[in-house]
Amino acid sequence: MAAYIVFTRESTSDQAELDAYSKAVAPTFAGHPARILAAYGTQDVLEGTPPEGVVIVEFPTIEAARAWYDSPAYQTVVQHRWKGASYRAVIVQGV
């Protein structure tokens, strides 16, 4: 069953770190069955405080999503995202 990682950027603290992350993240998907469905597109906020941005990545299973997220390649790159902004990230299983 499909699973989705949803990233919401709440606030930016260091744009240079986010730029480093943006330049390095694409290769971390190599060998992982991922499909980016949304990435910082226009938002129409229905409830609550709007995040600065939203990214949704589809995987075939929760295990596949965790395999990418926990991979050494991504864990090296994600350090830049953590230094650059406050994010929320969640894996949600599809129906």
Score class of each variant (00 low, 15 high):
residue 58 E to M: 07
residue 51 P to L: 06
residue 42 T to M: 07
residue 59 F to H: 00
residue 84 G to F: 10
residue 68 W to D: 04
residue 87 Y to M: 15
residue 66 R to Y: 14
residue 16 A to N: 07
residue 56 I to S: 06
residue 8 T to Y: 03
residue 59 F to M: 00
residue 90 V to L: 13
residue 9 R to V: 15
residue 51 P to Y: 09
residue 62 I to H: 12
residue 71 S to N: 10
residue 4 Y to P: 01
residue 12 T to P: 01
residue 16 A to G: 03
residue 88 R to E: 14
residue 31 G to E: 02
residue 68 W to K: 03
residue 31 G to W: 00
residue 77 V to N: 01
residue 54 V to F: 09
residue 70 D to G: 09
residue 67 A to T: 13
residue 45 V to K: 07
residue 20 A to C: 12
residue 25 V to A: 08
residue 62 I to K: 13
residue 63 E to L: 10
residue 50 P to N: 04
residue 54 V to W: 06
residue 86 S to G: 07
residue 48 G to R: 10
residue 47 E to W: 13
residue 5 I to P: 00
residue 34 A to T: 01
residue 14 D to N: 15
residue 4 Y to A: 05
residue 7 F to G: 07
residue 67 A to V: 07
residue 53 G to K: 11
residue 54 V to C: 13
residue 72 P to L: 11
residue 18 L to K: 08
residue 18 L to D: 05
residue 56 I to Y: 09
residue 7 F to E: 04
residue 47 E to D: 14
residue 45 V to Y: 03
residue 11 S to Q: 15
residue 56 I to R: 03
residue 80 H to K: 08
residue 35 R to A: 14
residue 45 V to G: 05
residue 87 Y to P: 01
residue 15 Q to K: 11
residue 66 R to M: 14
residue 45 V to A: 13
residue 88 R to H: 12
residue 54 V to Q: 11
residue 57 V to I: 15
residue 38 A to V: 11
residue 39 A to Q: 12
residue 48 G to Y: 11
residue 50 P to L: 05
residue 2 A to R: 11
residue 9 R to H: 04
residue 62 I to T: 14
residue 43 Q to K: 05
